[in-house]
Amino acid sequence: MTGTLDLAAQRPTPSAQKRINFPSAGAAVRLIAVAALLALALSTPGFLSRVSLIALANAISLVGCVALAMTFLTIGGNVMSFSIAATTSVAGMVFMATLGYGLPLAIGSSLLAGMIISGAQGVVIGTLRANPLIVSLAAYALLIGGTQLIAGPKIEPANLDFQIFKGRLYGVPVSFVIFAGLAVLGQLVLTFTRVGHELLLVGSNSKAAEAAGIHVARITLFAYVMAGAFAAVGGILVASRFGAADMQTARGFEYTAIAAVLIGGSSIAGGRGSLIQTFVGMATIAVINALTLLQGFSMEVQKLTIGLAVLAVIIIQGFGRK
């Protein structure tokens, strides 16, 4: 009977080649799509002009910060938040309201506001295992109603210090520099810190993470606090762009943000993805928008195209799982 041990050991081992090639199928499709988009962009007259590129950079940096915020939630297994754009608006209002006390304090209080608002949701979701979508819907209603009761419809700044965020650095819009910097910073946190690794594990499977002795509630809180801070940066940029802040300034950002996360290729189920991918996703959306306009299509076609792009990504992900 001793021969049976050998029998088990002799089970066919798969070829190394097959193993390496398989997961890149989805990546190949994505690469082809990006290449096609680039080719289209380069062949469209006016796309590569300085004005057009700066407009592009400006367009993506505001929503981009919100998309980066959303990425932390998605990777952590909490798909999306309906309240994140409202958080952005509130942070913008706090920024404008406290600008009279100096720029550093205004930035600080705005970040703090974003982190508290988002962190509070993280506590509820992490400790009570509440459904993240429902919690964010409740937070959305609370923010919309509460802020307007407390602060009134619109906040005008006490001075023009915010103009610094509308400037250029070596010809590049400051807001874009900040957006790109956030993407890199966030990615470094995700790749090189312990909490970053734990966030990926929690997002991949929160039950397994708990069984492995990871503080799931704390990590979830971390993701929400990071998201709040990133959303607040977006709020500061948006408020500075418009020179005033109200609850409408960032309205609808969450939809573009989740589209950027998904087009970037982060997993809806959590555990896989990166902020750099979201950056690319955001850029893709901006390019699609610019192209449709330059080619003379209407806003409706823009929306339609992005909808199709998201759908395509979901279908690719679905096939990847099978």
Binding site: L201, S204, N205, K207, A208, A269
Partner: peptide
């Protein structure tokens, strides 16, 4: 499948998850 390991993570990540 649901609790013991991280099915969607590489073996390496699983090995060092704790």
């Amino acid at each position: 499948a649901n609790e013991g390991i991280f099915l969607h993570m590489p073996a390496r990540s699983n090995m060092i998850s704790t």
